[in-house]
């Protein structure tokens, strides 16, 4: 059963806090700008264009994916924060269903991610990427599904940790490897076999690949690794698996 009241509270709370906290808002915009122009700008001098796409353009979908990844995981693991500082108890003693709490957390993280994706889309003209309205809609849709999926992975992680000291563990052992093994910075099929296989079990890979497919429709598969249909099916399936897992675990671990 779904309680719209708890979903509403969680979304209102997270979005309000995100908008209110100026430093988080600014750093969430600064990170992609730094990656695009400092890392991408530097490396595009070394890496030759692929199918008419320069390196700085090539990593643009990857940077959208990175923003979604950081923002989703960070939103989801605020559950640890809520456990540590007590607010989770306020929600848990309320007459609301546990699955709605999980859904609310996942949706609020997704909405916060979408605000950031929208702002990164405003950077596209500076990279020589022109997107029509239909492409923008496709990017937003894929980012939405990807973010929802990653939020549920984040919730699953957060359920297991009780203190915020675990934050650096999560960043170093989950978030960073996920980012570098996602095809954000280099095509997956050019990786050594072992790394390539690791990238193939990473849901972020398919999200970023989907974004590559819709942002560079004319590159004829020289930029992306999989067909867009494969990308979408895998993201939807992974979302379904992780929301089920996170809800089940949330119910048993946070009674």
């Amino acid at each position: 059963m779904i309680d719209s009241n708890v979903i509403r509270v969680i979304i209102l709370r997270e979005v309000k806090k995100f908008v209110r906290e100026k430093s988080r808002l600014i750093s969430s915009i600064a990170r992609p700008v730094i990656w695009l122009f400092l890392v991408g700008g530097g490396l595009s001098r070394l890496v030759p264009d692929q199918g008419g796409v320069s390196y700085i353009q090539f990593i643009y979908p990857g940077i959208i994916g990175m923003t979604v990844l950081f923002s989703s995981i960070f939103s989801a693991i605020s559950i640890i924060w809520d456990k540590e500082f007590g607010y989770m108890k306020e929600i848990l003693v309320a007459p609301v269903s546990r699955s709605s709490i999980v859904l609310g957390k996942a949706l609020s993280g997704t909405i916060v991610s979408m605000i950031q994706v929208f702002m990164i889309l405003l950077l596209s003209p500076f990279l020589g990427i022109s997107l029509d309205l239909f492409q923008v809609a496709e990017v937003l849709l894929i980012a939405f599904m990807l973010s929802f999926c990653l939020c549920n992975i984040g919730i699953l992680i957060a359920v297991f940790y009780d203190s915020f000291e675990s934050f650096s563990v999560i960043m170093n052992f989950i978030v960073m490897p996920m980012f570098f093994l996602s095809g954000a910075m280099y095509p997956v099929n050019k990786l050594p076999a072992v790394l390539s296989w690791l990238a193939r079990v990473n849901p972020l890979t398919y999200g970023i690949d989907g974004l590559k497919n819709v942002i560079f429709p004319l590159s004829g598969g020289s930029v992306s690794d999989f067909p867009v249909g494969t990308d979408l099916v895998i993201i939807v399936l992974t979302s379904a698996i992780f929301i089920t897992l996170s809800t089940l675990l949330f119910r048993t671990r946070l009674k």
Binding site: R13, E21, F85, G86, Y87, V93
Partner: peptide, 14 residues
């Protein structure tokens, strides 16, 4: 029921 827990449970950023 209403509960006031031993440890604070307010959201300090609201």
């Amino acid at each position: 029921i209403g509960i006031v827990f031993q440890d604070p449970t307010l959201d300090k950023d609201l």
